[in-house]
Nucleic acid binder design. Structure first.
Lengths: 335, 335
DNA sequence: GTGAAAGCGCTAACAT
DNA sequence: ATGTTAGCGCTTTCAC
């Protein structure tokens, strides 16, 4: 291997490793190194294509310039868009992003956090957690590293969050449905139900109903299993065909269910639902492409990424001491 | 900071750092360390939650257990799905994935490769390259690290590739159109045209025509700029309205253009194209949801990820010496 | 079977 | 304004 290192440069230039190190790290002026020398060093580095050994540097400084991102599924457009905006901001600041998918599995999340955090592997972490409680994250060896949670709140855990206003968005959208003539609205929720995003959206759904004196709206809520959306929604639609007082709208808790629902509604079997209204939390491009008019709530996806990155960076720099929760507003898209 | 380290364990257990290190790395038996001792060590590690310092280890061994993935846009479903399958396989082998998006920009690609490769930052690299030529990758300090190129071939560069059969897939799809009654087919291509994926698909388009004695099919090819798809396709459709011999089909080179095209075709301005057929290279779920029947060619996205990961791992392990190109087959989806 | 000691390549006190 | 030196925490050779 025998790659170029400080030692070699030092010999070739006839200056010490220290001096070169200072120049490389932009501390030349701070230590009063002459401009001439600095230029010489920089030239040599460029010419010889010297690049420092990241690990030696990290070992010495205790900082890696890596940030970890842990989400449930990097192939989900919601998360990959966030990933993109995070990576963009971080890269501009000299950081690199490491990504893991948990597949909504607590055990995997644990493993991945451990792996990244273990002995200063990453300087900071951004995670959309699946956890029901905070005990794992409260362990000192984990909480030692700056973490920003996104999208979901870990129940009862005081931490740094960047989330969207799930409650308000859902409430407004359901209000809109009720205001524009809907009498009975079904709500398709996604499991696990304990996720704060799901809970808050359901709460919005219920409160919109209560405001109109409709109690026990939770009876209209149908949980759909993450792993078998297609079959469960299909079964649910069949049931609905039998109902005495029919639903005139369906409020769907996420884009994944919405996509499948729209697909199913095109079947002739469900022709009778031709006029049922569909609304969705989360706005996706698909809604612009299908005949069915789907009103929705759009989340500021890019902002989640930029806010979260900025926050970790601040935490790392020690600029931010107190735990903070950033709640980003949603926007209603009426179709 | 003062985290738990080998030194501490060594003191607490009354054995040397060497011995502990051996046990941790599974070399206990190799060095004939007694089972009792090994068990003691392992227990202590578990109990005290010791995790080795990744950087010290990497510095010493020269291996990082990081793999870099560089794509044009991690928020593109095609790439994020690949990322997901790569990450899954690598994680199971104790590797972590670092991701970067180049935004179809050679300069950024260069920076990112440099950053990752610099001084054993990653053990291997998987990249969907934007490069027109191979000189950058042929530099010794870059070519030193195992690289697998995916999706696109770097022109004239002999390297390790995992790609799909762009030529065959396009040819078959266009053949299908011609076989089922299409007389004149427009082809919407995406820039940069030099990308091997684009070139090969266009070649397939042309050859399908030639087989029927239709020469100069390249006249039907319209390049669309990556950054302004919407406006360019719109302008193109307007032009088409004027044409003497009208097109009866549009073959689109990627899903991004297809999505926008379908959106545009719904405008009343383009009502006259109601019966035009649309076909697309790349199959996306959207095609199942819209009224327009879109035939397509689907790529084995997950396989690209798993093959590529397996290949880098093999390269790293020194199992694979010769450059190899894996060409995965596409599947036609007739609608 | 086990341990001592060298050294991976870098940075930051401390000298000068 | 520049150099000397002591580690960062681990693995591995060599010695016992």
């Amino acid at each position: 291997m025998s790659k170029l290192q400080l030692e070699d440069l030092s010999r070739q230039l006839g200056v010490s490793k220290t001096l070169i190190s200072m120049v490389i790290n932009g501390k030349g002026n701070k230590y009063g190194i002459s401009q001439k020398r600095q230029a010489e060093v920089l030239d040599a580095i460029a010419e010889l294509n010297y690049t420092p050994n990241h690990f030696a540097k990290s070992l010495r400084t205790g900082r890696s310039n890596f940030i970890g991102l842990i989400v449930t599924d990097i192939s989900n457009p919601f998360y990959s868009t966030i990933a993109r905006s995070i990576e963009k901001l971080l890269f501009s600041q000299g950081f690199n992003l490491m990504v893991c998918s948990t597949e909504e599995n607590e055990e995997r999340e644990k493993q991945q956090v451990e792996m990244m955090v273990s002995r200063q592997g990453v300087d900071g972490l951004i995670v959309a957690s699946t956890f029901k409680n905070s005990s794992f994250y409260e362990q000192p060896r984990i909480s030692r590293v700056p973490i920003v949670f996104i999208d979901r709140v870990v129940p009862l855990f005081k931490a740094n969050y960047v989330i969207t206003d799930n409650y308000g968005g859902a409430r407004d959208l359901v209000n809109h449905l009720l205001d524009t003539g809907c009498r009975k609205i079904a709500c398709l929720a996604i499991t696990p139900l304990h996720l704060s995003t799901v809970e808050d959206r359901i709460k919005g759904f219920k409160d919109a109903h209560e405001r109109r004196g409709i109690k026990e709206a939770e009876k209209f809520v149908k949980p759909v299993n993450f792993t078998s959306i297609q079959s469960e929604v299909e079964a649910y639609l069949r049931e609905m065909k039998e109902a005495r007082t029919p639903y005139d709208a369906i409020f769907v808790l996420n884009n994944h269910i919405a996509t499948i629902l729209l697909k199913l509604l095109r079947k002739k079997e469900f022709r009778q639902f031709a006029n049922i209204r569909v609304a969705c939390f989360d706005d996706i491009d698909l809604f612009n492409m299908v005949t069915k008019k789907v009103s929705s709530v759009s989340q500021p996806i890019e902002d989640i990424g930029t806010s979260a990155s900025q926050l970790v960076l601040d935490l790392i720099a020690g600029k931010q001491i107190n735990k903070s929760t950033v709640v980003l507003n949603t926007k209603m898209v009426v179709r």
